[in-house]
Design a protein around this nucleic acid. Sequence first.
RNA 1: GGUCCGUUCGUCUAGGGGUUAGGACGCAUCCCUUUCACGGAUGAAACACGGGUUCGAUUCCCGUACGGACUACCA
Length: 512
Amino acid sequence: MSKEVRVRFAPSPTGPLHIGGVRTALYNYLFAKKMGGKFLLRIEDTDQTRFVPGAEEYIKESLEWLGISPDESPWNPGDCGPYRQSERKPSYMQYALDLVEKGHAYYAFDTAEELEAMRERLTAARVVQPQYNSISRTQMKNSLTLSEEEVKERLASGEPYVIRAKMPRKEEVRLNDMIRGWVMVHTSSLDDKVLMKSDGMPTYHLANIVDDHLMGITHVIRGEEWLPSAPLHVLLYKFFGWEDTMPQFAHLPLLLKPNGNGKLSKRDGDKLGFPVFPINWENQETGETAAGFREQGYLDDAFLNFLAFLGWNPGDEREIFSLEELVEAFSMERIGKSGTKFDIDKAKWYNEQYLRNKSDQELASYIKEDAGKDGVELNQEVAEKAAALVKGRVTFPADLWKESKFLFVPLTGFDMDVAAKKWNADAVKVLTHYSKTIAGFTGTFDAETAKAMLGASAEAEEIKLGKVMQAVRLAVTGSGAGPDLMEVFAILGTQEVSKRIQFALDTLPVIA
RNA sequence: GGUCCGUUCGUCUAGGGGUUAGGACGCAUCCCUUUCACGGAUGAAACACGGGUUCGAUUCCCGUACGGACUACCA
């Protein structure tokens, strides 16, 4: 019989959630939903010194933006609360003590200076790995070296202490990672990790095992940076006697810099001009800010689609997936092993695809909003026309207004390079004729009519239309490039087109 | 340094003992077109290296190189 799949995303609230973390959350979500299970969020705030106000809210908002909100979380608790480790603090000590009793952990009273001295001593002795381990612990102040009475005394006197895991001297730890297969590590290379800190808080290692166990977590899906400590975690499950319910591990490949090597960092984004965070971040206290994909104009579903493909693929040649389709297609086996370089061009491409698939109605609302910011009020009908006209030439929603703005505000000038090449006597003749003709036109001025009339004007002046089209565009739009000109004319209407042509005729000097 | 993980076009990847090594982004060319873009078509572009195993290896094994992660009373 198989029990319900329960996975968790367990970020620590130390700042804005990195895009790699968002992808981890997404894969957790996809796996949970695919398996018909639950996706939980647990805040790992056991390091009180690194707590950053607002970080929790940021995590919540980021996940909500992408539509991958957890089934259980601090804000939406299930039966396994609390969902913040700081609030679970009282329960950890008993588990650490249980390990001490079983002989799998011990008290250590060494000060920071003593630890430093130990490392220096070992380094001087050319020990390859200067660490607190099965060898060096015999030289340190802990309940393994001190007498029982002295340990009791120290404890009773309130002397600060930590509880360390006691690594077996010679043992092979194996774990079957869902992505990497069997990974084997010898305990001789592991150190006696601190389980309980002197402030009474557990470290990540203890807390995550205890909580995963208590919360019924079946699969631990996390970044590759955790792989080296996974053997310790396996050992901890053994120490507790929880092997039977130990979750399966899956260590995700890292997100790397677009150029060069190494993990993707905030600096890379700043340097290359793209965000590495889902949404904007601002730390009120420090003034630290970070740009988000959302505010840069990335669509939630496009960004999600892009993110899903950073390290995973469906195995066929489809590229566009809604969240529901991702859930359907997702499988852990199809996650790659190697690190993935971040490619912002692909993100843009996804955004374009999703933008073009939106209806003119939806697109119109973006245009209306941005136009409003420029003090231009547009009605739905005309905004939709503008949207239809420019939707094929944009990457971000904000581009819609940028590309169509010229329809609604007076021209600020003409592209003089184009003018130098294309503005000539022939163009002036045709435009003069055309301007007069349409000014008196009272029929329906649609694209076809506009074009037919323009053709007629050219013919009347015995000039080939193709010769002057660029000049016509320049006169009406100020630019040598843009969307379909006759559609532009239709939106503008006879009076506005005529007016603009007249203005161009008055303004632009004829060269030839 | 040590431990662990990884390596198919520039990038994301499919594939897997015998293939013209497939797709996507980007790039180039052409078509469409009054322009730019969109769209369509085409093209350049990859199995890190060395040994095995095998009739045959890009695919399996072992090394090497390169890259990465970890190496805290941080997660």
